[in-house]
């Protein structure tokens, strides 16, 4: 019984972490219809910026996290404004463009910090013990931040003027412009937020796991899983799917064996695509 609870808690924490990883990716697709292949690279950049500020300059971790968010958001802002915006209507072109950014970001980290994994100074340590269940504090931090970030993105999209404008622009760009909205102001901001979320995730998660130029691939895969399962562009779908992925991974890892978990997940996704190509909560976005 205790094992089941521990596994469930483990799955939920993992799911929360995955939701945070997928959040920015899902936002970029939901609003800009851009599949951001640079999402993993931005996660890595966020991790390294936090590492640089915390481990090499020696400032408190909080500053490292803030610097990571600002740096990645700035990259996202400029990249959307000057590059993606020119090809915003061509979905395949935006994939290739973000792939280019991903290569450049990876190359920059490789050049600056080398190919070896770096050791983060211990930032959040210790483990919470509740009954027979153990949760590391670092994970709790991730869960709390994930909850806040999801709530913030939700409020931004559905309760603010900017969110309404962004959704209007997604729906009918030309009409939204005729209402006085400026996509060249709003879309770079939206992409900056999406990129900043990737940087935030990197700064929070890499100290708990590992930080090397190539760890972003895993994040990208998790994001793909979440949005395919949840339905492209559906924010609630991505969150639910992330938690589901976390739970499946946790239970399969405990009861079946480690490497089976991803295989079952990925194969499950291929099967899901046959039965329901729009994902769990998706609408008619298959041809988008």
């Amino acid at each position: 019984m205790n094992e089941i609870i521990q596994t469930t808690v483990g799955g939920l924490t993992l799911g929360a972490q995955y939701a945070l990883m997928a959040l920015g990716f899902s936002l970029a697709f939901g609003i800009l219809r851009v599949i951001n292949f640079a999402h993993g690279a931005l996660y890595v950049v966020g991790g390294y910026v936090a590492y640089f500020v915390t481990g090499q300059i020696g400032l408190p971790y909080v500053f490292g996290v803030m610097a990571a968010v600002l740096a990645t958001a700035a990259i996202g802002y400029l990249f959307e404004l000057f590059i993606i915006e020119r090809r915003i209507d061509d979905h395949l072109a935006t994939i290739v463009l973000t792939l280019g950014l991903s290569l450049i970001g990876g190359a920059a980290m490789l050049g600056l910090f080398g190919p070896q994994a770096v050791r983060f100074p211990p930032v959040v340590s210790g483990t919470l013990q509740l009954g027979g269940v153990y949760i590391p504090y670092g994970r709790i931090l991730v869960i709390v931040v994930a909850a806040f970030a999801i709530a913030a993105v939700y409020l931004l999209l559905y309760k603010t003027q900017m969110g309404g404008a962004l959704r209007a622009l997604t729906d009918d760009r030309e009409m939204a412009i005729a209402m006085g909205m400026r996509p060249k102001v709003l879309f770079p901001l939206a992409f900056a937020i999406a990129a900043g979320l990737a940087g935030l995730t990197g700064a929070l998660v890499t100290p708990q796991f590992s930080l090397a130029p190539f760890v972003g691939e895993h994040v990208l895969m998790i994001s793909f899983l979440a949005v395919i399962l949840g339905g492209l562009g559906s924010l609630p779908g991505a969150v639910i799917a992330s938690v589901l992925v976390g739970l499946v991974e946790s239970f399969v890892g405990v009861y079946v064996g480690g490497s089976w978990a991803p295989l079952i997940l990925f194969t499950g996704i291929l099967v899901l695509l046959v039965i329901r190509p729009t994902g769990i909560l998706g609408h008619r976005t298959v041809n988008a």
Partner: peptide, 14 residues
């Protein structure tokens, strides 16, 4: 059965 972006994503998963 999938097009454009979806096909690209799924080949990556494959």
């Amino acid at each position: 059965r999938l097009r454009g972006t979806y096909f690209a994503l799924v080949t990556f998963v494959l």
